[in-house]
Design a binder for these strands. Sequence first.
DNA 1: GCATGTCAAGTTGTG
DNA 2: CACAACTTGACATGC
Length: 315
Amino acid sequence: MKERITKEGFRRKRGRIRLGLCCIFRKEPIRFRSTTAKHLLQFSRSEQLRKLSAVCLHNSKALLASLEFLKKNGIGAFRILSPFLPRYTHPDVGYTIDDLPDFQIILNNLKQAREFSQKHDIRLSFHPDQFILLSSPQKKVVENSIKELKYQAMLAEYLGADVINIHGGGAYGDKQTALAHFTENFQKLPAELQQRLTLENDDRSYTVGDLIPVCRDLNLPLVYDVHHHRCNPGKLTVEEATELSLSTWTVAGREPYFHISSPLRGWHGSDPKPHADFIDPDDFPECWKCLEITVDVEAKAKELAVLELLRELDK
DNA sequence: GCATGTCAAGTTGTG
DNA sequence: CACAACTTGACATGC
């Protein structure tokens, strides 16, 4: 900690680290809405679409408000929640954008969001949830996953988001076989989806060491989650994993994407996996501080945690 | 208003 | 063997 010189003018500058907010706000009154298939199914199709349209329209406005907040507060990235257009791929109530009565306003808002984020250099990303599995031995599971990924790729296209980040999925008793399934399924995806997909190490199955060969093979960037790494490190140190992950981005000339969080109840004794409200500055790897990277802050206090970490890194 | 149960989906590890 | 946790609560219902 000695190398941080506090004297004005000699302040050690952090690398251009862009901090990212994940999905929602703790205190700022910006809320995204959702709805359920069960609720929708009691109405006629046209009534369903009216309700869905209202929610999607609300969310498109909430996104614009989010970006405005990020710009004002120096936050450089935003992860868009998966049900931004809720139940889009649901087998019974799924829809396309132009089914929605307000689709023109919604599309216009998405276009505005893209222009705003480009103008103010706010990086947008997606993180499909735990059901999205390209490594599953079940054909139906992979099919549903691809359907959802295509939906997120469509949104990413409208919004100019460059990252759709997923995990390796289950190990199914044999990681190498599962990763072979992943590779096989990845190669069948449309190019516009392949271009955006990234792989993230997780806190139970796949370590950075497990994923690096797949990433090299498929030319796939690795989103390095240092909290997951500390829960499930494999053989690599944080410095080694950082270096390996960086190489998967720089080969494509893209800005690396990392994740940070702190354990809810500390590193000792109880389960370290659940996330804390804020980031303990000691959890932020020293070796990241001079890098030009995006770091998503996975903390329960959301924008408050991002702002606090920003201040901490500026010290 | 507020408490509570429910919501599309898969997999893993814990108690 | 049920259940919480996972990147994340929000919504609907009933009092």
